[in-house]
């Protein structure tokens, strides 16, 4: 299963590092990263593979939400299929 991780919030040092570390700890493999800063706001989208993940999706959502809270950013994890359904025929 592939997931889409979106992170939005005030920019600061270490967001990518901490989020990536949390994913690595859960054996989630990052396949694609797209990130930029707009007007001081941090925007990032990751596509990751959960094939070898050691946590179920809801537990991963909670883990990443906790990491995001500590960084002051919103972290959202969704099954990739909702985006494929909406944007791909």
């Amino acid at each position: 299963m592939k997931i889409v991780v979106t992170i939005i919030g005030q920019d600061r040092i270490g967001i990518v590092a901490k989020i990536s570390t949390a994913l690595a700890e859960a054996e989630v493999n990052i396949m694609d990263i797209n990130q930029n800063i707009m007007n001081g706001f941090f925007n990032m989208v990751m596509i990751a593979d959960m094939q070898r993940a050691t946590l179920p999706l809801d537990a991963l959502q909670k883990k990443l939400a906790d990491v995001g809270r500590a960084l002051g950013v919103d972290v959202k994890i969704q099954h990739e299929d909702i985006f494929n359904a909406m944007h791909r025929i």
Binding site: T6, V45, I47, I82, M86, H87
Partner: peptide, 12 residues
Amino acid sequence: MLWRDEIFETNR
């Protein structure tokens, strides 16, 4: 692969 704008559009 999905585009970032598409992902943000859905979430918006």
